[in-house]
């Protein structure tokens, strides 16, 4: 059984509060601060994308030094062991693995960054002089009793953690909805009504409330 974080795009306002919450929570426990969620904004979608703690995690499979392992239901990276080979970042199907190091520039506004590459460069190959970067990804804030910081900080409730209880409830809701719909269609067709017509009536009706339909989208 795994657990992971998802976002409901119809609630996401693209404000980035989750990114900073992630960064701050990890900074507090001495881990790397590059946000472990990625905010994606296309014309249709605003959402954050992060690690799904895949059971067949390709990142764990390719890691040559066993820095990525399963810990119960989570896939974890040992930032101290990482050799920064970036294989995990290349194979992750969600683009969820990033590199993060501690920059020496910008401290107290004295030192100046001296970029050696354009900012559009992929952060997998971008390399800052003097910075040893480790692979970082979502660890579900397992160090905190409060759970994932991104979920707690989201002001619209868009970022959610899918864990055991939530998952079961979500599936049950879907099954209830499906059964109501199927029963209704069966009943109506026996009375000679058009299936499509029935469907459109149902979709405009009370059986599909907004909350459920938006959760469906997030889970696809």
């Amino acid at each position: 059984m795994s657990q992971f974080i998802v976002v409901n795009p119809s609630k996401c306002i693209g404000c980035g509060t989750c990114l900073l919450a992630c960064s701050a929570a990890h900074k507090e426990v001495g881990r790397q601060t590059n946000p472990r969620l990625n905010l994606v904004q296309t014309k249709e979608v605003s959402a954050t994308v992060t690690c799904h703690h895949c059971q067949g995690a390709p990142c764990a499979l390719v890691c040559p030094v066993n820095a990525i392992k399963f810990d119960g239901d989570m896939v974890v990276v040992d930032e101290k062991c990482c050799i920064s080979c970036k294989m995990c970042a290349l194979v992750c199907p969600f683009g969820a693995i990033k590199l993060s190091g501690t920059s020496v520039a910008g401290v107290a506004g004295i030192q100046v960054e001296t970029p050696t590459f354009p900012k559009g460069t992929s952060d997998i190959i971008a390399w800052e002089i003097g910075v040893y970067a480790a692979a970082v990804k979502c660890d579900l804030c397992s160090f905190s009793k409060d759970g994932p910081a991104c979920v707690n900080s989201c002001l619209t409730g868009s970022v959610q953690v899918i864990d055991k209880s939530h998952h079961k409830k979500l599936l049950n809701d879907k099954r209830i909805k499906a059964s109501v719909e199927l029963e209704a269609i069966a009943k109506d067709t026996s009375e000679g009504r058009n299936v499509l017509e029935t469907r459109s009536v149902l979709q405009g009706g009370k059986t599909l409330d907004n909350k459920n339909s938006s959760e469906d989208r997030s889970n696809q």
Binding site: S10, L155, N210
Partner: peptide, 20 residues
């Protein structure tokens, strides 16, 4: 553009949408 100017107001608009 409330999402950039006032995220807390954008939240009310998301809630309004959810309420129909």
């Amino acid at each position: 553009n409330p999402s950039a100017s006032h995220p807390i107001v954008a939240r009310r608009i998301v809630k309004a949408k959810e309420k129909g």
